[in-house]
Amino acid sequence: MSSPTRMGLSRYRLLAVAAVGVLAVLLGLLLFGNLNRNLVYYLDPAEALAQQADYGDGRRFQLGGLVEEGSVTTTADGVRFTVTSTAGPDGTTIPVEYRGSPAQLFGAGIGVVLEGFWRGPVFASDTMKVKHDENYRPPESEST
């Protein structure tokens, strides 16, 4: 009697794995990916400044932008730099204080997505992700 039952269970086991997987992804997205409460992955500097009042009480969100050239200075427990919306000089900028060791590819000019909160006019962050772009080429010295 047990063998047909076990057959039936194993037949539906993969279905259960698939269903649980889909639910886990959706649940994870809602719990951990919904930091900005609107499923936008990050706010750009202009949006972050415009919505500064909404994120007053140390509410965390993700800020995305480019690290401004020449703005990176090392501090005792991290780095201080400016995030800008565009590579040019006329972008919207936000000063950032980052605690912790920066990501491996961190440097001036690269894209970053920072998790943190407003501390006065400064964005205090403790989690950094580097957003590299879709361009691939050899270093300048090796290009022909």
Binding site: A16, A18, Y41, L105
Partner: peptide
């Protein structure tokens, strides 16, 4: 090594994970 994280909840990663599990559901069906 590039982004600094193994996983993040952005649209590309989430939709790809759903793609994986939905086609796993196809095999289960």
């Amino acid at each position: 090594p590039t982004w600094g994280v193994w996983w993040t909840w952005d649209a590309r990663l989430v939709t790809t994970a759903l793609l994986f599990f939905v086609y796993l559901g196809y095999l289960a069906l």
